[in-house]
Design a protein around this nucleic acid. Structure first.
Lengths: 122, 122, 122, 122
DNA sequence: GTGGTCTAGACCACC
DNA sequence: GTGGTCTAGACCACA
C-alpha cells in the first residue's frame, strides 16, 4: 500500500478501519488482522500497526483480548462517526470555506448546489 | 516537486498557475518561465509542461508571442476564477455533500459552522 | 527513579504528573520538562517519556506547542480527578472488597471506621 | 522472589504464610519448610527467614518442636484473620479513605459500588 | 532547541 | 501464536 506524507502512517492505517466500520464492512465483534499480519501486508513495522490499533483501542473503536487479538467494539460505528465528524469540522470545513471565499462563492449559492445535489439523489 | 496520482500531472502543473494567478502573485502580462526551464525545475519532461501551457492557452489564461514565450492574459484572473469555480462545483462539492451525509451533518449545522468561520475571520 | 513492574513504565511516569496536578503542585499552563530532559533524569529512553506525554495529551491533561514544549491544560485538574477516580473504582475497589470478604469485615463495620476517620480529621 | 521496600522483608515473608493460611492452603499441624530451605528458595539469608518464623511463632501462628521444625498451630486461621484484619484497619483503611476524599468520592457512592460488587459475585 | 514519527529488534505475559 | 512494552537510534517539522 501507498502512504502519503500529509498524515502519520499510523493514522492513515487507522483511517482504513474507520472507513470500513463506517461503511459497514466491519461489524461489531469482528476480528481484526493480527498486528504482525497486517504489518507484513502493508510493509511497515509491527510497531506502527500496533500504534494504529492502540489508537483505535483508546478511541473505543477496538477492544482487545490478550493473547487472542483485536476486535471491533459494540458501539464502534457511533464512535467512529463522532470522531470523523469532529475531524471534518476541524480540518475540512475551514479549507472549504476558504476556497469559497477565494472563488467568490457565497453561502446562498452553496445552498442551491446542495438542494440540487439532494434532488439528484432521489 | 511531488505529484499525486488523482489527477494528470499536466493539470497539476496548470493548477500551480491557477493558484498564483488567483492569489495575485502573477499579474496580467507577466512572463511565464520557458517550457524547458520549468520542466527542469519540476523534474518532468518538457512535453508535460508544454501540455500544461497549451491547456492554459486554450482556456484563455495565457497568451503567446511566437518566438518569445507565454504571458499572463489580460483577464486571466476572472477566467481562472470561473474555471476553478466550475471545477469546485463539479468535483469538490459532490464529495463534500456525500461526506456530510455519511457523517450525519445537515445543512443547518453547516451554516452554523460557516457563521462561526466568518466571525473568527473578523 | 525506581519503577515497579506491575504497571507499564510510561503509565507510572504519567502517574507522577497526575499526582502533581491533583495536589496542585502543577497549575494550568505550567511548562512540563522536555521529553529529553525528563528521560535523562529518569534514566529511560526519550521514547518512553514521549509515550507518557502523548498519553497525557490524549487524555486532555497536557496541551502541546510544536517546537516549544508541553503544558498543563486549563481543565487538567478536573480531567485528572475523573480519570483517577475511574481507575480507583475499576482497580482498587474490587481488591478492597475482596479483602473485606476474606477478613470477614462487613460493610456496616467499614462504615464505623469511616465515621471514626472523619471524626479524627476534624 | 521480588520484595518491595515499603515493608521489612521478614514481614513480607510472614505475609506469604498469612495468605496461605487464610486461603486454606496451609492447614493446622502442616509442617513448614526449614529455615535454610526457604532461605535458599527465596534467595535471602537464613537469618531473615528465622526472623519471619519467630514473628509468626510469637503471634501464635506457628508452634515449634525442638529439633524437628515449625508447624501451623491449631487456631492459626482465626489468629491470622485477626492480625491481618487489624493491619487492614490500621494501615489500609486510612489510605483508602484519604484517596476517596482526594477523588471526591463519598461514602454513599462507595456503598453503591459495594452493592454492585456483591451482585456480580452471585 | 522542541515535539513527533518510524524502524529494527528485543523481551514479556497470556492463551 | 496473540498483544504490549521498551530500547536505541534515526529523521522530520517547527521555532
Amino acid at each position: 500500500m501507498q502512504f502519503h506524507d500529509r498524515k502519520a502512517i499510523y493514522l492513515q492505517i487507522a483511517d482504513l478501519f474507520y472507513d470500513q466500520i463506517l461503511r459497514g464492512r466491519l461489524k461489531p465483534h469482528d476480528r481484526i488482522p493480527s498486528v504482525r499480519e497486517l504489518a507484513a501486508q502493508l510493509e511497515v513495522t509491527p510497531n506502527t500497526v500496533q500504534r494504529s490499533y492502540a489508537h483505535l483501542h483508546e478511541k473505543g473503536i477496538f477492544y482487545t483480548k490478550r493473547g487472542i487479538g483485536y476486535f471491533v467494539s459494540e458501539d464502534a460505528v457511533e464512535r467512529a462517526r463522532q470522531i470523523k465528524l469532529q475531524e471534518f469540522i476541524d480540518e475540512e470545513l475551514p479549507l472549504l470555506f476558504s476556497q469559497m471565499e477565494a472563488l467568490g462563492l457565497d453561502f446562498d449559492q452553496l445552498k442551491q448546489y446542495y438542494q440540487n445535489f439532494k434532488k439528484r439523489q432521489q
